[in-house]
């Protein structure tokens, strides 16, 4: 099946098997490997990307379901060569260790900030509760997302 998908602003047309998972399309067909696979059952969330701005787990979504839609992956977070505030904040607040859940966590965090520029700790924890992390105990991920929100509203490094 032919599908048209915009990935990080670039339109792609591809012929895919109907059963191809969106995560495999992103990783293998488009070649963007920052989106990961962790559990195969939509539980861990490391495959999360933004589909038209909304976080979606791509290991249980078919590529054909993304036809006509716009995806943002971790590779699309930077703006004009500058780190997105969420990226800068994850480094600053030590919001990552092995880095495997990080792209998804940052995308979920960035979507939250879009919607809620000043999220409380509870709101951050709820927003990322579909994403597992085995390294950090979430403490510094929560801190990083709140720091990014703060830096976004104060102008920080936002575009």
């Amino acid at each position: 099946m032919e599908i048209n998908v915009t990935v990080n602003g670039t339109p792609h047309t591809a012929d895919v098997e109907p059963r191809m998972l969106l995560v495999d399309f992103i990783r293998s067909t488009i070649g963007l490997t920052g989106t990961h696979i962790g559990c195969d059952t939509t539980s861990c969330g490391v495959c999360t990307v933004l589909v038209d701005g909304t976080p979606m787990k791509t290991c249980t979504m078919f590529a054909v379901q993304a036809d006509g839609r716009s995806l943002t992956t971790v590779e699309g977070l930077k703006r004009n060569g500058e780190l997105h505030p969420i990226q800068a904040a994850f480094k600053e607040a030590h919001g990552l260790q092995c880095g495997f859940c990080t792209p998804a966590m940052m995308l979920v965090g960035s979507a939250l900030i879009e919607e809620n520029p000043d999220p409380s700790e509870e709101e951050v924890r709820w927003a990322i509760s579909g994403n597992l992390c085995r390294c950090t105990g979430y403490m510094n991920i929560v801190k990083a997302i709140q720091l990014a929100a703060q830096n976004s509203t104060t102008g920080g490094t936002a575009e």
Binding site: T33, V74, L77, Q87, F90, K91, E92, H94, F100
Partner: peptide
């Protein structure tokens, strides 16, 4: 010290086995 490995991880530049 802020971590040097973070620069690649936060930009999707990690090189894990399946990559």
């Amino acid at each position: 010290r802020r971590r040097v490995e973070d620069d690649r991880f936060i930009q999707g530049g990690g090189n894990y086995l399946d990559d």
